[in-house]
Amino acid sequence: MTLTALSFTLLFVMGTMMVSIWQKLGLEKDIAIGTVRSAVQLLVVGYVLQFIFNADHILYIILIILFMIAVASWNAAKRGKGLPGLFWRIALAISASELLMMGILLGLHIIQATPQYIIPISGMTIGSAMIVSGLFINHIKQEVQSNKGEIETLLSLGATAQQAMQKVRASSVKFSMIPTIDGMKTVGLVQLPGMMTGMIIAGADPIIAVRYQILIVFSFTASAAITSMLLSVLIYRLFFTAGLQLKHPQ
């Protein structure tokens, strides 16, 4: 695909913006910013990846993975304003799940230890862990709000923070995993996943593409489960003061 051909796809974007202006949806600005951002981000990533693939040095791989984790954690932590220390806890949960996934995939020689494998698969795992974290935080905040009476009743009866939060934690873990599990159930039937599509377009044998996709789906599910369970352990205490009072929402 030439750059000229690629530029023609901008016509789609312009069409969308026209509709937005015509229908007074007020989305033109967001669409314009989104377009420029995604194009610039992806182009930069392309060059960075090219550089790393050529350099083939472990340090660069670690750096880019740390960068991904930082961006993902920062993004997910935005959902939890008023919960101090959330960023580090999310970063810890995502890092742990990434470490475990890579440990298994590399340790069992399921994938090769080259940046071409490690970086994209890490990116997808971390991205999915980010979505799970965001959902988890969103949900647990709401649940604490709507179960305030129940939590305080348990506290009055002498419950620990853990006992008082048990139900809310379980329901938030469950909730945050719904999209991953639903995705697993319908994968390939409803939509062809991005990576598989990409490989097929790039000329890979569909059977090979499918194998990688299965790998990815399983990794996603495992990393979603690990991330959200770890998060539930790491953050439930944030809703309480040092004196074990449920904090008022800001």
Binding site: G149, E150, E152, T153, L154, L155, S156, L157, G158, A159, T160, K167, G243, L244, Q245
Partner: peptide
């Protein structure tokens, strides 16, 4: 003082029965 007693232990000694009774699941 309450500052020297763990909140759990305190609440087992001084127990609040709320104005709006909340049933647990």
């Amino acid at each position: 003082s309450f500052q020297h007693i763990p909140a759990r232990q305190w609440r087992m000694t001084v127990t609040y029965v709320a104005q709006q009774a909340v049933m647990l699941p």
